[in-house]
Design a protein around this nucleic acid. Structure first.
Length: 217
DNA sequence: ACCCAGGGTCATA
DNA sequence: TATGACCATGGG
């Protein structure tokens, strides 16, 4: 299967990434919201601010004034929007029993619950499912589309759910899907960071023969 | 000075 | 359903 072969090449080249950076499932969830369209380095600064104010907790976040929360989130950009989204998420999170309670839910139910929160879309939900709840969900992001479009394995304009199904089913026979999906998404991101920044055609990066990706086809 | 970053929502046609 | 505007900081 082509998907597993590409994974092996990425893994061989970049090594294990052991994602998600973060010391607790809740920190992963917060990071997933804060990293929306934002460089991770800036998310780290915002999380550091939360930690320094003992605010990396759902209870504290829901009762912190929006302006105050937004000030802590400032380095991660969109701070007013993200303050709102974090609060929305934390309300929902506390309301449904936090990690212990939510972890009893089936993956489909949990996913639907996450998507019901205003500010959590499919990618953020899947980040949380995979990296905080260890559910076998494949995260689709812009890098995934870019990489596999260039490999001509997808068109690029498919819907999110269509692509997610494609990857999950394409790797369904592999052992340990959670670990595989975890590393795979992380490798795609790290790969993009190192080699695939320029957009249209990827000259001189991993996508031509000199690097990770096998020659056309 | 410009472009992008580990997206999502909302208004409009 | 499908675009477009908007959110906003920080690094290259």
């Amino acid at each position: 299967m082509a998907l597993k072969k590409i994974y092996n090449l990425l893994y061989r080249h970049h090594g294990p990434q052991h994602w998600w950076p973060g010391d607790s499932p809740f920190e992963v969830m917060v990071g997933a919201v804060l990293t929306q369209n934002t460089a991770w380095i800036n998310v780290e600064r915002a999380i550091t601010n939360l930690v320094e104010h003992d605010a990396l907790s759902a209870e504290v976040i829901v009762k912190t004034h929006p302006k105050r929360l937004a000030a802590w989130l400032k380095p991660s950009g969109y701070f007013n929007v993200k303050a709102k989204r974090l609060k929305n998420f934390c309300h929902w999170y506390l309301q449904h029993g936090e990690y212990q309670g939510l972890n009893q839910w089936s993956t489909d139910t949990l996913r639907a619950g996450l998507l019901s929160v205003n500010g959590i879309g499919p990618e953020t939900a899947d980040d949380i499912l995979l990296y905080a709840f260890a559910r076998p969900v494949f995260v689709i992001d812009a890098y995934t589309r870019r990489l596999f479009s260039r490999l001509a394995l997808i068109n690029g304009d498919e819907g999110y759910e269509e692509l997610r199904a494609l990857f999950e089913q394409g790797l369904a026979r592999e052992a340990a899907p959670v670990e595989l999906f975890n590393e795979y998404h992380a490798l795609i991101v790290i790969h993009a960071k190192h080699h695939c920044r320029s957009k249209p055609v990827c000259e001189g990066c991993c996508l031509n023969r000199t690097c990770v990706v096998p020659e056309q086809g």
